[in-house]
Design a protein around this nucleic acid. Structure first.
Lengths: 350, 350
DNA sequence: TTGTATGCGTTATCAG
DNA sequence: CTGATAACGCATACAA
């Protein structure tokens, strides 16, 4: 148990005062070159590293960034985290990662607890049903800067970086329309999530543009995970007539649609076209390869981190709302609807 | 900027000394019930939270766990991280996450830097080519406990939790053999990684058992990612005769094999059987669904975290080496080899 | 330019 | 049982 080397030891070794050591470390005052070199040498030879704890206590701020996300296990988030980490690393910030499991209370408890570590800033991807705007607001007022990612909590007025959900969803839907589909199902995320809401809005907009009626029972809400996507798809696919195409508002739910279709012996894409949202890594490997809307996860994280760092560095000014573009990836899960409008026939056969 | 509430304020509010407050918080001495209640009430009403920084400085240890992994973006790792986080959370430890990108120098720098945060413990999934055994050893001697996960760095003698790589690989290979394959290709991970080595060993063992000759040019080394898997597969599939089945030592590389096969117009599984290792989420959605060896990522993390916490709590005793079992998942990417040993014919046609 | 001294918020020791 | 008080390692205001 070698006790860690402290500044005092550096001072002794370099035969200077402890204050001088601090100055050369932080560049907070001019130090005679000779002394400076001695100090540096002492630091090197003793392998000294400043205690982040002591420093943080003194400065009332550490070089940690708190990051609160719903669930790292959701394949969309790792890229975001990585984007954050990469820019944070360059600025020598470290990430404390917290998974809320979409549990608002866990989110709040993490939030409060993180506080006691005096992080330099906070990045949060709000939980579904998150109700932390108030909490966050008080945080932002008396604590470190906060930027929200991907979803905007109700009532949140601070910095936020998002993705062009509405435009992306609209494009996806247009693609379906363009291929000839007129009976579109949609599986949305939790509707209190802004991104879910926006995607649905995009969907509706595309339908309106094309003057295609929206069939209310064809919009099903799920929870952005595979299971709920599967369940929603089952509901959709058992309807008569059923949709000839489904827009799943994320790729995980699209997987659920595949599953449901397989179970009901509905062939994709011949009998059912599917389009997703996210462009997760596996999208090009599903059978059929999933057409989807690419979402720049890494950029999302990187951008948010950059913005956060600017705030930490004291950048004032109006809150930013940065919206990153999406891109439609056309693969093979969307084709023209079956001939003879099969679903109609079935309906009349009923 | 409301300054955070400190212990002193609690003491004043409760009309006790600051020491007493500390005692009720930490249960470090008996406090008269009446005072205790007053203190608790003050804490509650002022929303007090102990400064982790001050506490850490004083105790020379925080309640953070450092976790060093190659890349959160590799879909095998999120589950591991989640496993860690869940058990850590229950014990009220927090995770600071570091991605090394398999860069040994980044790994070492993270390691040293984490030190200055006085984490209670360290979890590390060593980078490929990691050479941190020595570094880690000094760390373990004078610093917090460390447990390695998934891969054992060369020369590391401390705690480690692994997966039964050899047995898993052996089972996968046996499955190929059982289906009638006699010309097996294998795409390994970086051979300095213990897990890659063990999987290859399992592969060889199965061949020996079956008295099937191992064809040296059929074992190709790659880097556990999709691209290198693709490249290795291209090499393999251009050979004449080529293997009728390929064991990719992880699922990401198996994806690369799918890609290569598709590009060369080799149909899977009719002309080429593929088996992977990991059982990533997408494995059942590839075309064809990927047969693979399930690796308990979440358990890996959870187990390691539990072990680490025990060490933090002062559990002495011999270093542990915990090996978690794998499970063969049979799906549809493995079938009997093509009739008439097609590859042979091609070879003779040359 | 450099040294000294104080305090950041806790815990822990030691009297009372 | 409870209250002072001295560290913990560092940054900083101030003195020299």
């Amino acid at each position: 148990m070698t006790p860690p080397v402290t500044m005092r030891q550096i001072a002794e070794r370099a035969e200077v005062s402890i204050g001088t050591v601090s100055h050369v470390i932080n560049g907070t005052a001019k130090v005679r070159e000779k002394l400076r070199l001695r100090v540096l040498e002492a630091i090197r030879s003793l392998g000294y590293q400043p205690s982040q704890l002591a420093r943080g206590l003194r400065r009332n701020q550490t070089s940690m960034l708190g990051m609160i996300i719903p669930d790292i296990t959701n394949p969309f988030f790792p890229a975001v985290v990585r984007g954050v980490e990469d820019v944070a690393y360059k600025r020598s910030y470290r990430i404390v990662l917290c998974n809320t499991d979409n549990d608002p209370s866990k989110e709040i408890s993490y939030l409060n607890e993180l506080r006691s570590y005096r992080p330099a800033g906070l990045l949060v991807i709000p939980a579904a049903e998150s109700d932390i705007a108030a909490q966050l607001k008080s945080f932002a007022a008396s604590g470190p800067p906060v930027v929200c990612i991907d979803r905007r909590p109700l009532g949140w007025k601070g910095d936020v970086v998002l993705v062009a959900n509405e435009a992306g969803a609209c494009n996806a839907t247009r693609h379906l329309l363009r291929m000839g589909h007129r009976h579109l199902g949609v599986i949305t995320g939790p509707m209190h999530l802004t991104n879910a809401e926006e995607r649905l809005k995009g969907f509706r907009q595309a339908l309106e543009e094309a003057k295609v009626a929206i069939e209310p029972e064809f919009v099903q809400e799920a929870r952005f995970d595979r299971r709920s996507g599967y369940e929603a798809a089952m509901r959709l696919l058992r309807m008569l007539p059923r949709p000839t195409a489904i827009f799943a508002c994320n790729d995980l739910m699209a997987l659920g649609v595949f599953l449901a279709a397989r179970e009901l012996h509905i062939r994709c894409p011949e009998e059912l076209s599917i389009i997703g949202f996210d462009n997760l890594d596996f999208a090009e490997f599903t059978a059929p390869a999933l057409s989807t809307v690419h979402q720049p996860g890494y950029q999302l994280g990187a951008t948010a981190a950059r913005l956060l760092v600017e705030r930490i560095d004291g950048r004032e000014g109006a809150f930013q709302k940065i919206v990153l573009p999406t891109e439609l990836k056309i693969r093979s899960s969307v084709v023209a609807p079956p001939q003879g409008t099969a679903p109609r026939k079935r309906a009349s056969a009923r």
